[in-house]
Design a protein around this nucleic acid. Structure first.
Lengths: 227, 227
DNA sequence: CGGACGCTTGAGATCCCTCAAATGTCGTGG
DNA sequence: CCACGACATTTGAGGGATCTCAAGCGTCCG
């Protein structure tokens, strides 16, 4: 019964950053048995709001957005997920949120119920998921502050600083387009664009018109704008 | 070693709705050993943003708000908690959020580290906490939609409908004052007040000027306003 | 009676949205 | 290599929703 660790796990880019990092090799064998790889094209939907919540996954490469929408179709991005992040809601029958790929994304997918059975048997996995979920909750609450109380410029400054922190440097590559930034920050695309040109004119950032490459020139002032 | 269940647990008003409901009597004895009752006056602070995160608690009676603030002091309420709800962030050293009593509130308090030790030993408790945390996360994300994309009137209509659902009826008693509604909905107190008088003039609600008693007269239209 | 507090109302300013058009970029096909 | 269309972004003009500042009410309590 010495099942070997599958190659896709041995070579996995997120073996040590995803939820799986909480498992030893023997445990990982058990989890790997119910998992399979799947590639989602950019713009592809992973889970639909309202559908029954059939799957969980780890992101191996790429990025997803978690999307909410009003009845009239106004959209709000309520979370961004990157390599190593966990996707899905174990123990929940349905969700009002849609999960969509921002870029081509490789997932390691599990059926929700099978994943729940593994959670039953692997306390370390459940603990790691609990800790992640609590971090996500704190994040979602901080974002309520941004959405409810910050100015357009403050929202954008905070977003740029967050990305810089995640990427570790002042020259950043935005993971999302202007329109997606607008959905994420509760603004319109025009407001995002105008604020970014203003920031360029004020010498706070350098960013070729329309480009996703941005250099933060004055983090001090950006931090002050972030209120 | 047949330690009896303490009276405060036998008589507990939230024995069957709080996290404790996941425990059998024997397990509850273990948890009760590290808990104690504490009454917080209205306006009292349970945990301060930035302090080290020393405690967890169940709400026995009363209500709390979870509060975030910008550097300049603009405040945003990022969650409301009522009897039976769990307070605190196990496995986290510190939080940027402040928890404050809206009314006089009775808590059943645990030291965070002691509570974590109980979680280690009681998988059902941990499972119940995970499920609650995931529900809170979904809630916090839905609130991002409200804060980012809804109009003032939509925010208030949605809030009134939520309260009506929680209280089960069309005659509701608002759990919070106008200013607290403003903090919760990302508005100013003046906007809340003006929108509510408009809704009264439009026949959507009945509410004596300045009162917390509100009757929903036209839920259909309110739901439509909620976008 | 007077003051504190919470709520309402008013006037004006501001920020952001809406609608519209121009500009730029990129990939495809001629 | 250039022309073209699709698409994302920028820019402009104007309007509207919400905020700010200020004053007026009503109630409760000392």
């Amino acid at each position: 019964m010495d099942e070997p660790l599958p190659v896709r796990c041995q070579d996995c880019l997120v073996r040590d950053t995803a939820l799986c990092a909480s498992l030893c090799d023997a445990e990982l064998v058990a989890l790997s048995r119910i998992g399979r790889r799947k590639t989602i094209p950019a713009g592809g939907v992973v889970t639909w709001a309202g559908d029954d919540n059939a799957l969980c996954a780890n992101i191996v490469t790429g990025a997803l957005k978690v999307q909410a929408a009003t009845a009239e179709g106004r959209e709000q991005t309520v979370g961004l997920l990157f390599a190593g992040d966990f996707v899905g809601n174990p123990f929940t029958e349905t969700s009002a949120l849609t999960t969509e790929a921002l870029t081509e994304t490789d997932l390691c997918i599990f059926s929700r119920v099978a994943f729940e059975r593994v959670l039953d048997k692997r306390p370390r996995l459940e603990r790691a998921l609990l800790e992640r979920t609590m971090r996500s909750l704190e994040e979602a609450r901080q974002r309520q502050l941004t959405l409810g109380r910050k100015s357009a410029k403050g929202k954008i400054a905070g977003f740029l600083l967050d990305i810089a922190e995640a990427q570790g440097g002042s020259e950043i590559e935005l993971p999302i387009a202007r329109g997606e930034m607008a959905d994420y920050l509760g603004l319109t695309i025009e407001t995002v664009s105008r604020q970014m040109t203003e920031m360029r004119e004020e010498g706070l950032i350098d960013a070729p018109r329309g480009s996703r490459r941005v250099t933060l020139l004055d983090r001090e002032t950006l931090r002050a704008l972030d209120e």
